[in-house]
């Protein structure tokens, strides 16, 4: 056996498992969408005609985009502070980013329900203090979904930006300062452009994960904010419409792939996904 064959033999068990039990079933979804309940493009014409589907897709992209913007803004502040001003406190700050990252999404969504519910802690406290008379609607709407989505996705934005910023030498900024630039100008013109790869990486990661997100929107949307994943699950679990569900899944897969292809022009996909830290 040649050396090369032996190396492939090492990789084969995992690769075969992935191809047979993952890639094949996922590709099969396209097949089902064209054959169930009868062969043809019926599911797709129904999908494109449906107003509810259109609403759900627009909603999904909007929520994913808003989540991404907020995660990048808030995450940048954290990543920059940890790398530049962190000092002795940097490990603590990193720990506070990692802790939520490791707590299960289900537990975090539950915490948000406890906080934002109609008789949740936020409403109760504000009513006790006499700030409001009647409970505010903080969840079962887009606001609740957005708050918890940003909470869940923030670490995914922070960590790539942090990895990128650690590789940037402070000496450029210092040189700019020495040459008379204000701190703000040095940051804006010298430091910030160097952090863009990290920003793009984090943004892409958050956007792609948000597009297909299910748990948090399902729990905090309360059936009123149907992102596309929940819409798919609803089609199957309540209506048993496999045809439409698989057509929607195919559309979501294609949409995700398109996002990746477009993003590939200005994001280093390899660094973002393959060599993630």
């Amino acid at each position: 056996m040649s050396e090369k064959t032996r190396y492939w033999m090492l990789a084969l068990p995992a690769l075969a498992l992935m191809m047979i039990f993952y890639i094949w079933p996922v590709l099969n979804i396209f097949g089902i969408s064209l054959t169930e309940p009868e062969p043809g493009f019926g599911n797709y014409t129904r999908m494109f005609d449906s107003n509810a589907v259109k609403v759900s897709f627009v909603l999904t992209f909007r929520i994913a985009a808003i989540t991404t913007v907020f995660c990048l803004l808030l995450g940048y502040i954290v990543a920059y502070t940890i790398t530049t001003y962190g000092g002795r406190r940097a490990p603590l700050m990193l720990g506070l980013v990692l802790l939520p990252f490791w707590v299960s999404v289900l537990v975090r969504s539950f915490a948000w329900i406890v906080l934002l519910g109609r008789s949740g802690l936020v409403n109760d406290t504000m009513m006790d203090w006499g700030i409001i008379e009647t409970p505010l609607r903080l969840m079962h709407n887009e606001l609740g979904v957005l708050i918890s989505m940003v909470h869940v996705m923030l670490p995914f934005a922070i960590l790539p930006m942090l990895a990128n910023m650690r590789g940037i030498s402070q000496s450029h900024m210092m040189a700019a300062r020495g040459l008379g630039a204000s701190e703000w100008r040095a940051f804006r013109e010298v430091y910030f452009p160097q952090t863009l790869p990290g920003v793009f990486s984090g943004g892409l990661l958050v956007f792609v994960l948000s597009l297909g997100f299910f748990i948090t929107p399902a729990l905090l949307g309360g059936g009123r904010v149907m992102m596309i994943s929940e819409y798919i699950s609803y089609q199957i679990q309540e209506l048993l419409r496999w045809g439409l569900a698989t057509a929607l899944s195919s559309a979501l897969l294609v949409a995700t792939a398109l996002v990746l292809i477009v993003a590939g022009n200005f994001v280093n996909l390899r660094k973002t996904f393959l060599e993630r830290k």
Binding site: M18, G212, T256
Partner: peptide
């Protein structure tokens, strides 16, 4: 295995292995 190989095919194999990160959970569960 793929580290020893380190050729184009090996890189493609590595991409195949991370596909589950990119596919939405509901879609893969289906």
């Amino acid at each position: 295995g793929v580290w020893f190989l380190s050729d184009r095919a090996a890189t493609i194999a590595r991409w195949v292995m991370i596909v589950p990160i990119l596919v939405p959970p509901v879609v893969q569960s289906l």
